[in-house]
């Protein structure tokens, strides 16, 4: 019995090491898992209800030793989720059609990010071209992006 007493805490310790913490597993609305192209999930509803937590995670990761992670920055969000106005050019957050603004207005939630951050994509020249149509899905946008990259070469 004494031997068993010595072994059980070790087993407990190993279980704790290799299993995810219970608190994280019990919180399904925020699936903090490995990012898939900057997202926790491809499920729109999951991202709709959790994008603020994702942004907060990225924000905390960037400070205090700022890491160059442009792929998951808010800059990348507005680059992929670009919305075009009637002149076929990307619109800023001042326009009600803007990807973020559209939903926030509907939900009556203030949109503070763009009081400091840029709401227009600027580092992806391809996306600024008027001939490019809005992508209906992330996959389509990714295909556009890859085609553009291939075209440049």
């Amino acid at each position: 019995m004494r031997r068993l007493n010595n072994v059980i805490p070790l087993v407990f310790l190993l279980c704790m090491m290799f299993c995810p913490p219970a608190s994280a597993a019990d919180a399904p609305p925020v699936p903090r898992q490995k990012l898939l192209r900057g997202h926790w999930s491809e499920d729109k509803n999951i991202m709709r209800s959790n994008h603020q937590a994702l942004l907060k995670d990225r924000m905390n990761a960037a400070y205090p030793l700022s890491v160059p992670q442009r792929q998951t920055s808010i800059e990348q969000c507005v680059t992929c989720h670009v919305t075009r106005g009637e002149d076929k050019l990307p619109v800023s957050a001042e326009n009600p059609k803007h990807f973020c603004r559209d939903c926030h207005t509907g939900q009556r939630v203030t949109l503070d990010c763009f009081s400091c951050h840029a709401s227009l994509p600027a580092n992806d020249p391809y996306i600024l071209l008027p001939k490019v149509k809005n992508a209906d899905s992330l996959r389509q946008r990714l295909a556009q992006y890859q085609a553009a990259k291939g075209g440049k070469k």
Partner: peptide, 10 residues
């Protein structure tokens, strides 16, 4: 209030 910020420098 700021507007038209550069993406690299919020």
């Amino acid at each position: 209030k700021t507007s038209k910020q550069a993406p690299g420098s919020p």
